[in-house]
């Protein structure tokens, strides 16, 4: 664990952190629970023209217009179906509210430092930047996503680039 070298960093990381676990297809992902504002169903999303396909559009969240991103399409998971179980996790990142579509929200997990393993080297092609680590939980593996970094990244096209 080369990235946790300084002692105080070690003790900070040793504190338990809570994650919201959700699944995309058969894979399990987790995001920092402190970023989550609420969880709601998927309905009434208005399509936005000329936007990337993973931006499903915008929805009305109690009077606030919120963009809805489908992570399943973003991560290229085989089938993105919208049914009763489809869930939108509303997250609060960088002073913005964004909804992310996932297949299912399973539970809230507490992970301690030992259970968080560094993200493996995936070779050349994967966006490791957005993965803060892997959660090891008996026979389950959770991919810990840095949701703020992911959603504010340029490739998500959620935030207007400078000079536009």
């Amino acid at each position: 664990m080369s990235h946790v070298s300084a002692p105080e960093k070690n003790s900070a990381a040793a504190r338990d952190r809570e994650f919201l676990v959700f699944s995309l297809g058969d894979e399990e992902y987790a995001i920092d629970i402190l970023k989550v504002q609420e969880i709601r169903g998927y309905d009434n999303v208005t399509r936005i023209a000329n936007a990337p396909d993973f931006i499903k559009g915008v929805a009305n969240l109690r009077g606030v217009i919120v963009p809805i991103v489908d992570l399943r399409i973003k991560f290229r998971l085989s089938n993105a179906v919208y049914d009763e179980q489809t869930v939108v996790i509303v997250v609060n990142i960088a002073d913005r509210v964004v909804g992310i579509v996932v297949d299912r929200v399973s539970d809230v997990m507490t992970l301690n430092a030992e259970q968080i393993k560094p993200a493996p080297e995936f070779g050349v092609s994967l966006p490791l930047d957005y993965i803060s680590g892997l959660g090891n939980l008996e026979n389950r593996m959770l991919v810990l996503v840095d949701i703020e970094k992911l959603l504010t990244s340029q490739e998500m096209a959620l935030v207007a680039e400078a000079g536009e």
Partner: peptide, 16 residues
């Protein structure tokens, strides 16, 4: 409603 609060400027659209 402003679209840019949480999203960005959409071409051809002034607001929602």
């Amino acid at each position: 409603k402003n679209l840019e609060t949480n999203y960005r400027k959409v071409p051809g659209v002034s607001a929602a």
